[in-house]
Each structure stands twice: as C-alpha cells, then as structure tokens.
Design a protein around this nucleic acid. Structure first.
Lengths: 221, 221
DNA sequence: ATTATCTATAGATCTATAGATAATGC
DNA sequence: ATTATCTATAGATCTATAGATAATGC
C-alpha cells in the first residue's frame, strides 16, 4: 500500500535510517491493513501485527510509539491509494466525451476495489487520537475537493450549467458518499445489483442533481 | 430508550422475573448507549456499564452473558427508536399535501436527532457476533422498506410515475443513506449548512431521482 | 560506537464467575 | 427455598519497555 509524503515526519521513530523506516512502515501497514480488515483494530494485537510483519514486537515499537500510530499509518495509506486512484481517473476522464460520467464511473470503481478499506475508515476513524482524526477528515475533504474542481471545470467550459458554490460542495460531498454507499451497503447492494448497474443508476442521479442545483430558485439565500 | 419486542427472548438471563429483566435491561441499555457513544464499544468496560447502570458487575452478568450482548441490546434499541420515529413520520405525512417531501423531511430530522446513535451503528455493527449482525442488517432493511412502501403507495395513486421495482429499491436505499450521510458527514455538513438547507437540497434530489428512475430506457433489463 | 533487533516481562488491564449475602414468599 | 444481588478474584490477556545481543562501519 502506498505511503503518503507526510507520514514519515508525523510519527516519531527510534530508527535513524529514513529509508529503512519507510520500508518497515510499509511492511507494517501491509500486514496491519489485512489484520484490521479481518478482525478490526481493537481485536488485533500488536503482537499479531509484529508477527504478520515478520519482525519482533520489540522491533515494531522502534517504528511506532503506540498502537494507534499503526492505525493512523493504515488510514493514511488507504487515503493515499484512493487519491492515487481518483487522480488517475481524473486524467483518463479528461480526454473522454463525457468527462463527468467517466469520472464518476471510475471513482465508483475505485470504491468497489477498495471496499474493505473504505469500510475500515468508516469504522475506525473514531479510534484515532484527535490530532490524527483531523488529518483523516482533511484527507476525506481532499477527495471531495477533486469532484468540486471537476464540476467547476465543466461549468467553466459551459458543459455544465452554473451551480452556486454552496450547492456545488453539497453535490461533491453527495457524490463521494454515493461511492462509499456501495461499500457499506454492499451486504445488500452486491446481492441484487452489479457494480455497473449501480454506476449507471447513480451517475444519472448525480447528473440530475447537477441540473437541479443549477436552477436558481431551488435554494434561497 | 425503547426496547424492541424480540430482545427479551433472544438473550438468555439467570433472572426469572421477566418484568425485572426488561426493566434492568432498559437501564443497562440507557447507561451503555451513552458510554458507547462517548468512548466506543471496546474502550467501554463492563465495570463502567455496571457502575453507570447502578448495579454490581455480578448483577450485570445475570442479565447478559457476554459484553457483546450489551452491544446487541443497544443496537436493537436504537433501531426500535428509529423505526418508531419513522412510523410516526409516516402517519403525519400521510395527511399532508406532499407526502413524499414531508416523509423525507421527517426522516431526515429523525436522523438529525439520532445522529450519535446512527453513527454508533455504523461503527460497531462489525463488533457483533454474526448471528446478531444479521438481525441488525434486517432492521436496516426494514427501515428502507418503509420508504419502498411509501413510494409504491404514491405510484398506486398516480402521484408518482411508475418506477420498476428493481430501481425502486435503489431509490429507497439511497434515500435512507442520504439521511445517514447527515450523521457521518456532520463534521463537515453541520459546519456549513443547517439541517433545513440539507433537507431542501436532498429532497429535491430524491424527487429528481424518482422522475429519472421512471424513464423506461434508463436501465435496460 | 552506533544502529537495529530480539527476548523476556513488568505492569496494568478486563471479562466472567464462584461463592457469600440479603431479600422475598411459602 | 428461591430469587436477586454483591464482593472478591481467577485467569487470561495485551501494551509497551528494559536490557541483552547481533550487525555494521569507523
């Protein structure tokens, strides 16, 4: 799983070699992500994390200072991967005929692929110390911000009617959440619909939402 | 918090007097709900629950057999309260001019009022033993089913155009989730919008979604 | 010498129960 | 006698660290 730029700075370590810290933390995250997805954060022990990483419990604590540090590293790595996926989607969709539809579709596929990880963030963000919970929420806003900019770009070219910025944010947040919905309602949705059906359905809704939000009378100041 | 009909049967107890069991469990749930909301399920100890309930740890274990039992009782009580709120909303909205709008609005207000509790269910359902996780998911479907029936009723009277049942379910689930969205994106939404603004915005989207889903070509078989 | 790692364990929990005690009704 | 409750604690963890050991480079 991809590490983000900032994580190395944020969490103190006893180990001097930065390259080694990065490598070991990547190993730790890879091991921990699976354990957390399978058993949850609280039921996973630091010993399990160490064992699954292939290092001793003592060594583990050279790279982190508390168990919550591992959770933060994991959440951060997940967001980094989501952002990477969405950024790629953005590039590809730019050249298409229907940038918004393609962007939404690609984003939903990222959510589909990262289902377990997105679910983990919904479930365990609260277990983070306040300081890092903040960071996770900022990451969440950053992903939503990508949609805001896509929409703003389309409005600038006239491909989309003008939406007041207040409502634009709501459209972007709703779009983000409709992607997440596929992950936390998977227990129902995936039993009844394919991801493609779901994408078709929600893409239409999102387009409808844009049209509706562009009507000036719809929300008085 | 309101107990549901089935909970007394589901969880074994050492205590013979059913009325006492119901009373004590209500006390336990009331105490536990607040502790879980504040500190999460795993960080709350059975001792804290006992103390906050006003009974001894020994007495607590006469009414439950594992800590997870308390979580189940809590989730069940939350769903019972949500269902009560939604059922009341249903009654009131029936007599109005715009049943769907009013129903959605009332439902969103229930979500607003029960924010902490809905969030708790999102976070801790996974901590339940499989058997009870099933029950919680069935409760979730039951709430969604209320929307399905409201929509079906309106289609029957012609107040709403015909939506194929496959898509109707998606509309109902999406509506449910848009209510939940207010709770788990509260950290952003409530800082920028009032609940009324949010309701206005999403109600329009839901109506748009209904119109869109009624168009026959929108999802081939 | 310095850095990284390991083993062993201190210290602090926390769940669940056993066995004693009090309260209630025959 | 039966039912409900309490106190005290067994037993099982689990996090985090101290101190020993191995590996690396001057």
């Amino acid at each position: 799983m991809a590490p983000s730029k900032t994580e190395t700075k944020a969490i103190p370590t006893q180990v001097k070699n930065p390259a080694l810290v990065e490598q070991r933390r990547r190993q730790i995250v890879d091991a921990a992500v699976n354990l957390f997805v399978q058993n949850g954060f609280h039921k996973t022990t630091t010993r399990q994390i160490a064992q699954s990483t292939g290092i001793s419990i003592g060594a583990l604590y050279e790279y982190i200072t508390t168990k919550e540090d591992v959770l933060y590293l994991v959440c951060d790595a997940i967001h980094a991967e989501i952002e990477r996926g969405v950024a790629e989607a953005l590039e590809r969709s730019k050249n298409g005929n229907n940038p918004l539809e393609e962007m939404v579709g690609e984003y939903f596929r990222v959510c589909h692929r990262m289902s377990d990880h997105i679910l983990l963030i919904y479930q365990e963000t609260r277990s983070l110390p306040g300081k890092w919970r903040q960071v996770v929420l900022e990451n969440e806003i950053r992903v939503t911000g990508i949609f805001t900019r896509v929409l703003a770009g389309l409005m600038a070219t006239g491909a989309l009617p003008r939406i007041p910025s207040r409502k634009l944010d709501l459209v972007a947040h709703t779009t983000t959440v409709l992607g997440h919905m596929w992950t936390f309602r998977r227990w129902f949705l995936s039993n009844h619909y394919s991801i493609d059906e779901y994408i078709t359905f929600q893409t239409r809704n999102i387009l409808g939402m844009c049209r509706e939000s562009a009507k000036p009378e719809s929300m008085p100041p």
